[in-house]
């Protein structure tokens, strides 16, 4: 039996109208990757760009909670059209699992990711922001295999533990010549150039720091409140650097 996986053949087609695909990635959970993904998508949409947001963190999808939306199933049109929420086309596994857990093994995660990429019709977008699964396991490898034009935006706290995992990811991405836009140091609590220095040593652009914002947690689930946080202001300062097409390989 030939066993051709027909889904791979359409993924590139589904993404052909998307100008830039940014994978927001962190190796450890809890570093703020999902909040940065959502806020970045919102900020870009505010600037008039056509933006899509894809939550591929299957084990703990949270973008819908950050945005404060009750998921409504996407419209069908020879595939699935992601609903537009706050000016963003939003797709997530949450539409399919609702409040149920998704106890998926590696092969199941890989299959589900490929299926979702194959059925989602994004049409024209300036940016597709992907909230990546944490780490460099099956899910991340599958996304790298399926999407050829990925650019990685890395997120780390100033913790040595978080950095060590990010460093491994940078090495893996470099081995495969996958572009890295840069790194955001999130939830910074004390003065230190640890992340900036180490990023420079690896030839990765340091995009800036976002200080720990104690008010952020209470703002989650309200796009309006998030936009008024200190977190959002610091992220705003980083965005011009993201818009530069300069990439490090």
């Amino acid at each position: 039996m030939l066993g051709i996986d027909a889904r791979f053949s359409v993924i590139e087609d589904r993404l052909k109208g998307v100008k830039r695909i940014i994978a927001v990635s962190a190796c450890k959970g809890g570093v703020g990757k999902s909040v940065i993904s959502c806020s970045l998508a919102l900020k870009l949409a505010e600037r008039g760009y056509k933006v899509g947001l894809l939550d591929l963190d299957f084990f703990s999808p949270s973008d819908h909670m950050i945005l404060g939306i009750k998921p409504a199933f996407p419209q069908e049109e020879k595939g699935l059209l992601p609903p537009t929420i706050y000016g963003i086309k939003f797709m997530s596994i949450i539409y399919f699992i609702e409040d149920k857990p998704a106890p998926l093994r590696g092969i199941d995660v890989s299959n589900a990711i490929i299926e979702l990429l194959a059925i989602t019709i994004w049409k024209e977008l300036d940016f597709l922001i992907i909230d990546m699964p944490p780490g460099i396991g099956d899910a991340t490898l599958e996304i790298i295999r399926a999407i050829k034009r990925l650019e990685f935006l890395l997120v780390s706290t100033q913790s040595k533990l978080a950095w060590e995992s990010v460093e491994r990811m940078i090495k893996m991405l470099k081995q495969q010549s996958i572009p890295v836009i840069g790194i955001i140091e999130n939830m910074k609590q004390k003065d230190s150039d640890f992340i900036k220095r180490n990023a420079k040593d690896l030839g990765i652009r340091y995009l800036g720091a976002i200080k720990f914002d104690p008010g952020l947690e209470d703002s989650l689930s309200s796009v309006e409140k998030i936009s008024k946080t200190e977190f959002a202001k610091w992220l705003e300062e980083i965005i011009p650097k993201l818009l530069q097409q300069e990439k490090f390989k």
């Binding site: 399919f96 149920k100 998926l104 299959n111 299926e115």
Partner: peptide, 30 residues
Amino acid sequence: FIPDIAHSYMQCPNCKSVDFEIKKGRGLSI
């Protein structure tokens, strides 16, 4: 739409585990 999501809605009829393998007949193939 996503056959693997079966893990969210099905269990082993014998021991109720959600950890099962789709051995055959998952979806479309050429």
